[in-house]
Every structure is written in structure tokens, then in C-alpha cells.
Amino acid sequence: MDALKSAGRALIRSPSLAKQSWGGGGRHRKLPENWTDTRETLLEGMLFSLKYLGMTLVEQPKGEELSAAAIKRIVATAKASGKKLQKVTLKVSPRGIILTDNLTNQLIENVSIYRISYCTADKMHDKVFAYIAQSQHNQSLECHAFLCTKRKMAQAVTLTVAQAFKVAFEFWQVSKEEKEKRDKASQEGGDVLGARQDCTPPLKSLVATGNLLDLEETAKAPLSTVSANTTNMDEVPRPQALSGSSVVWELDDGLDEAFSRLAQSRTNPQVLDTGLTAQDMHYAQCLSPVDWDKPDSSGTEQDDLFSF
């Protein structure tokens, strides 16, 4: 819950932080000083300027060897085509990944977070970031790969997607708890209302004896509580940590079903599988986004697919 609360507080303090972009060759504004600060901008989305290598189908939802083989196929196909790589912007948030063309600003792909089953910074092609997700059109699994400016960037994108998945799962947990509370309150309110109706004398007997209905007592009954809980029953509950912020979080049926399955089948359902080692994760978390744009010590960066 700490990640969720800190993310909400950060967004309320400075929503404009989320509009910064990394990996864009110096076009961005001043960047936060450390990885923790940038992680807090996830709610509205972190932007990464990358190059799209392509996509291939895979048979399993996750796995280092599986993704490595898929990336190898994608890279080989991209090299064989001889075409310049498409420059894209990857927007990562707890909602998922939005992929747009840098030149036309046209939407290429919009992947809900619950469809993503794996992401990684490839070991062999260490400047490549990739994720595996279920197609929104059918049940097939797709591996999408992107060329980053350097290994640090690939690791940073991988960690960002993993963190977005974690925050999304926490949102789901909060929403589920809130819905259970509202359902319980609604049920209790309905029981109270039913009890009051059972003990209320029939209207005919009131008229016969000349008694008047006590409207004041009726007004004191917990009807307002019942209506408050039943009027918006169809509205999706939102985490309290975000009250007053500009973010509107809505959970669709697909996300609810997917996270429910994860909660039942996995020990740590909030953790998205990645190909990063503990050492890689520690190294990337210690980086400032400013470091992502620094040239690798191995030599001059080449803006070309064939540089790796």
C-alpha cells in the first residue's frame, strides 16, 4: 500500500511530472533526481522514447528462454528487412502500455495491464526491452520488442512496467475491499429498513384510530445511509488515497477476473515476472533518469539497429 499512497501523494503535489519523457535525446524537461521519484509518476504514465523492432507469436506467457528466442527472431526479421526502425513513445501506467508513433502521434497499440504476463531486458541484446501480452483480438500470446538507447534504459522500462503492474494490483485490492464494505453496509441498511417496515402498523389501523404518522421519526431512520450505499452501487469504487486528485481509476471486468485468478494461483500475485536478476534490479533502481541518457562506457552510441 505504500507504493499506492506515495504515488497518489506525488501526483497530487505535481501532476505535471508524469508528462516528462525519457530517452528522447535531450528533449525532456528537468528530471527527478532518483528512481523513487520517477516511480511516483506512474499514475498518469511515464513516457519512454524507443524504437519498435516488431512482434512475434509465442506459445507460453512467460520465460527467459522463451523471450530470448522470440527477441532473436524479431531482431533477425528487422535486420533482414533493412528498413529504419519506427520511433515510438511507450506510455507506461497502472492501466497498461500505450504505444504511439512519434511522427504521426497515431495510436499503435493499447495493452491493458492485466494482459501483460512478462517483461524483460534481454541478456543477449542488452539494449532490447520486450514484453509478452495476450492479444486483445484473440487468445494468442505476442512478444513485442523495442530497441532502447542503452542497457540502462531497457532495464528502466522493464522495472517501470513491473512497478505499474504492482500498483494496478494494489488498486484492485483496495477497490475489492471498498466494494465488500459497501455491499455489507448496503445489506445491513436493508435489514434495518426491513425491520422498521415489519414493526410499522398498517396504514388502515392508523387511520381508524385517528393517529398521525410521525414524519420526524421517519426522517431519523437510516434511510439516507441505505440510499447512499445503493444509489451508486454500479459505480466502481476508487482508492481513497486518490481522493481529490485528477486521476480516475476504473476497474473493468477483465482486470477484476484476471487479478482474482492471480490472487488464487500465485504466492506473490502482485509481482510481474521479469528477466532481471536481483543485481540488475538493484543497479537500475539506483540510477537517476539522467543516467539513462548518458552514453555507455563501451563506446559511442549508434542510432541504428545494427549497432548491437
Rank of each mutant, 00 (worst) to 15 (best):
L159I: 13
E64Q: 09
K294D: 07
I12S: 15
E65C: 08
L90K: 00
G190E: 05
A18E: 10
E235S: 05
L90W: 00
F259V: 02
E177M: 14
D191F: 01
L272R: 02
A121W: 05
R95S: 05
W249C: 07
L47R: 13
G8E: 07
V128L: 00
A3Y: 10
K72M: 15
E216Y: 07
T36E: 10
D296K: 05
C119S: 11
P237M: 08
R27D: 15
L147A: 02
G24A: 14
P289W: 07
R266D: 04
Q302T: 14
N232K: 07
A80P: 00
R196Q: 11
A185Q: 07
N268Q: 09
T225S: 07
A284S: 07
F169N: 02
P237K: 09
Q155C: 07
P222F: 06
S245E: 07
I71R: 00
L305Y: 05
C199G: 09
K51P: 00
S21Q: 09
L159R: 12
W22Y: 11
I113M: 03
L103S: 07
T300D: 06
V75N: 00
P269V: 02
T209A: 14
S140N: 13
L223G: 09
A145S: 08
E216K: 15
T56V: 07
V88D: 01
Q134A: 03
G82R: 01
G24Y: 08
W249E: 13
E59H: 09
G23F: 04
S243L: 04
P15L: 01
T200Q: 14
E180M: 06
F129R: 00
S16K: 05
E170P: 03
E188M: 03
G25E: 14
I74C: 12
L242Y: 07
L90R: 00
N211I: 05
K127H: 01
P222A: 11
Q139G: 12
L147H: 00
V236S: 13
R266S: 06
R27P: 10
K83Q: 14
S67E: 02
D101I: 01
A284D: 09
Q264F: 09
Q106Y: 06
K123C: 01
S297Y: 05
V157G: 00
I97E: 00
E178K: 09
R115E: 09
S297M: 07
I97M: 15
I12V: 15
G194K: 06
D234P: 03
D214N: 09
L103W: 11
D304Q: 06
L193Q: 12
S135I: 01
K91H: 11
T41N: 09
K84W: 02
T38P: 06
R196E: 10
N138R: 15
F129A: 05
V271R: 13
Q279Y: 09
D2S: 01
A133C: 11
D37G: 12
A156F: 14
C199W: 08
I113R: 01
C119P: 01
V161P: 00
M124D: 05
A121L: 04
V111A: 03
P94S: 13
D101E: 14
A121M: 10
I74E: 01
E177Q: 07
A3G: 10
L11K: 08
S93G: 08
S112T: 15
D303K: 04
K19R: 15
E64A: 12
Q302C: 10
I108A: 05
Q285N: 09
E188A: 13
E59T: 10
E177H: 05
V226N: 10
R9Q: 09
M153T: 15
F259H: 12
Q187F: 01
R261M: 12
R39V: 05
S260D: 05
R27L: 12
Q270K: 04
G275E: 05
K184W: 09
A10D: 15
S175L: 02
A76S: 08
Q240V: 04
L213Q: 12
P61S: 02
A70H: 01
G299D: 00
D214K: 14
Q155W: 13
L42H: 13
G96W: 09
D293K: 05
P201E: 04
R39K: 14
K152N: 02
S16H: 05
K62P: 04
K204T: 05
V290I: 15
A80N: 11
R238D: 06
K5V: 11
A208H: 06
D126P: 00
V290R: 07
K181N: 15
H125M: 00
T36M: 12
V161H: 00
L287Y: 03
A195N: 03
A219L: 02
P94R: 14
M233N: 03
D303S: 06
S16C: 14
P32Q: 06
T38K: 12
G299Q: 08
Q136Y: 11
A70M: 02
L276T: 02
S205I: 07
D253E: 15
Q240I: 11
W292E: 13
V248Q: 12
S243A: 15
T200A: 11
V271W: 03
I116S: 00
N229T: 07
L242R: 08
K204S: 07
R95M: 03
L141T: 10
Q20T: 15
A185N: 10
D214M: 09
P32E: 12
S243C: 09
P15E: 11
A121Y: 01
S298I: 09
K127R: 00
S117F: 06
L193V: 04
N229Y: 12
S140V: 15
S112H: 02
A69I: 01
R115M: 04
A78Q: 00
N232V: 06
Y52M: 11
L276M: 14
D296C: 05
D291C: 11
A3P: 08
W292N: 06
I71N: 00
K176E: 03
K51M: 01
V192T: 06
T300V: 04
Q106F: 13
R266Q: 11
K84M: 06
K30S: 08
I74H: 01
D122E: 00
Q264D: 11
A133Q: 12
P222G: 09
L223C: 09
N232H: 13
G190D: 03
D183A: 12
A228E: 06
D273L: 05
Q264H: 03
E64N: 06
